[in-house]
């Protein structure tokens, strides 16, 4: 079995007096879809930002693709950043560029491909992300929320990364678009051989897409495992999360699908 592609050890983060992470540890294996769940504001997105070296923890270690990212400067992080794609919660698309230019930007920055080939590869990614054909020449402000997410995803996979980070990929999407997104994520993983780390509240994603799920409570990981296992957890908070009225609905759906 290949070693973990992301490895977090004994991570501590504080903002002033607020303790965000109090000894977080987890492992993401190559080729899996790993989801991080937990209540709002429990530090999931912060952990993701620390993994992609946008934020620094107080103590602990995070190894991504075999390299330590804690304490890494922008300059040193560059070669690593080329190998991962990030989908931000609000997309993070550049408003002054069209979708095609947005997707082509990483290619233009990091490769020596010609303009025409870059446009063609961008078109491939746009089609792959399930955007309609005319979306390429539109500006992000002209797109709906769901399309913006897909465009941002197209940009995240522009360089065919090995690792994809998704921050709340389905937040703010209607159920139909969200379901489309589930399938998209699964398809991408198979087609591009990606490892995916996502932060999400979406129970459908947790049940339907994630191979393993980690549940975060009070700055610690309260449980890790496939949803089936995790849902049998004795932890009251975990149980409440998964067996509240909405949790049960999602579970029943997932069960029916199987």
């Amino acid at each position: 079995m290949p070693g973990p592609i992301v490895e977090v050890r004994d991570l501590h983060t504080r903002f002033g007096d607020t303790i965000v992470h109090d000894g977080v540890g987890l492992e993401v294996r190559e080729g899996e879809i790993f989801a991080l769940a937990g209540a709002s504001g429990c530090g999931k997105s912060t952990l993701l930002r620390e993994m992609i070296a946008l934020q620094q923890p107080v103590a602990g270690s995070i190894r991504v693709l075999g390299r330590e990212v804690v304490g890494l400067g922008d300059e040193e992080a560059l070669p690593l950043r080329r190998h991962w794609g990030v989908l931000f919660e609000r997309g993070g698309l550049f408003g002054s560029l069209t979708v095609r230019e947005n997707v082509g930007l990483p290619l233009r920055e990091h490769t020596e491909l010609g303009d025409r080939l870059i446009d063609e590869i961008a078109a491939v990614k746009i089609a792959l992300a399930g955007l309609p054909p005319d979306a390429g020449s539109k500006y992000p402000s002209e797109l709906s929320g769901g399309m913006r997410k897909r465009a941002a995803l197209a940009r995240a996979i522009a360089l065919d990364p090995r690792l994809l980070f998704l921050d709340e990929p389905t937040a703010g999407l209607d159920p139909l678009s969200a379901e489309g997104f589930d399938e998209l994520v699964r398809r991408l993983k198979e087609l591009l051989g990606l490892t995916i780390f996502m932060v999400t509240h979406d129970l459908d994603l947790l049940w339907g897409v994630a191979d393993r799920v980690a549940f975060m409570v009070d700055g610690r990981i309260a449980g890790v495992g496939p949803m089936q296992e995790l849902s049998k957890s004795e932890q009251p908070l975990v149980r409440e999360y998964f067996y509240g009225p909405r949790g049960r609905g999602a579970w029943e759906q997932a069960w029916k699908r199987k």
Binding site: E120, A123, V124, A127, P133, A135, G136, L192
Partner: peptide
């Protein structure tokens, strides 16, 4: 599979709208 994907008609459609 990758080759099939890039050859899918959707890609051509996107390219065609590169107005």
């Amino acid at each position: 599979a990758l080759l099939r994907m890039v050859g899918s008609p959707g890609v051509g459609d996107v390219l065609a709208t590169a107005a």
